[in-house]
Amino acid sequence: MKALFIGGIKSGKSVNAQNYILKLSSSKPCYLATTEFIDAGIKERIKEHKKNRHDKFNTVEESLSIYKSIKANKTPVLVECVSMWINNMFHHGFNLADMKKELKKILKLEQTIVFVLNDVGSGIIPQNKLASDFIDASGIISQLISQNCDEVYHTIAGISTRIK
């Protein structure tokens, strides 16, 4: 079983994805945290996410090699979040082809995986090449994931609506 929760920043997709995977799991699921400590703002977001999930998850922190971390887990995995993973991959010199290769391996795994991804394609595309590349990669990756998921949920104002 694969599912994707996609929505804007602070839309409620993370909380809804957490509740969703907890309902699917008979044991403690894995929370795969992809965010790197970049600045104080990110540190606060990480702190908030940890508070929200309490002790209901086994947390694994991995910002780049997410395939290995997912494959190593025998429980359902919540990937939080794919957008930060894309950011990390670009920051460390990887390209879209590298990301697609990693995700294709992940999507072939038999285990339950729930992905969280920011919907960044509905706004203005900045004239900054890196930002434009990020938006393009995010759109392409969201399509790749959604095409291979059993269920896809779009989240707005805390409400996740199943679109697939």
Rank of each mutant, 00 (worst) to 15 (best):
E110N: 10
S122W: 15
S65F: 12
N52E: 13
D98W: 06
I86Y: 02
G41P: 05
A137V: 03
F94Q: 04
I46R: 03
V15I: 15
S132V: 15
T75W: 06
K13T: 03
N128A: 08
T155N: 00
S26D: 13
S160V: 00
Y153Q: 07
E36W: 04
D133S: 09
G93A: 01
S122T: 15
L107Q: 07
K100C: 07
D136T: 06
N73F: 11
Q18H: 09
I38H: 10
I159K: 07
V116L: 05
E48C: 14
V82R: 03
V82H: 05
K108C: 05
K28H: 10
S146A: 04
S69G: 03
L32K: 07
I156K: 06
N73C: 14
F57I: 09
P126Q: 12
I106H: 00
N128M: 08
N95F: 06
F37T: 14
Y153R: 05
E44S: 15
V15H: 12
Q147H: 15
E151M: 10
S122H: 15
I163H: 03
N87C: 03
I46L: 09
C81F: 04
T112C: 12
H49P: 11
L78R: 00
L32E: 10
K71I: 06
F57Y: 09
N58S: 11
K50C: 12
K129P: 04
I106P: 00
F94C: 05
A137C: 06
C81A: 10
E48G: 13
S65T: 13
K108P: 02
F134N: 11
V120R: 00
I42Y: 11
D133G: 05
I163L: 04
C30D: 04
K51S: 13
Y20D: 11
Q18N: 09
L64E: 02
C149Q: 03
V116F: 03
G121M: 02
F134Y: 13
E80P: 08
I145P: 00
P76V: 07
K108T: 06
K100V: 09
K23Y: 13
M89C: 01
L4S: 01
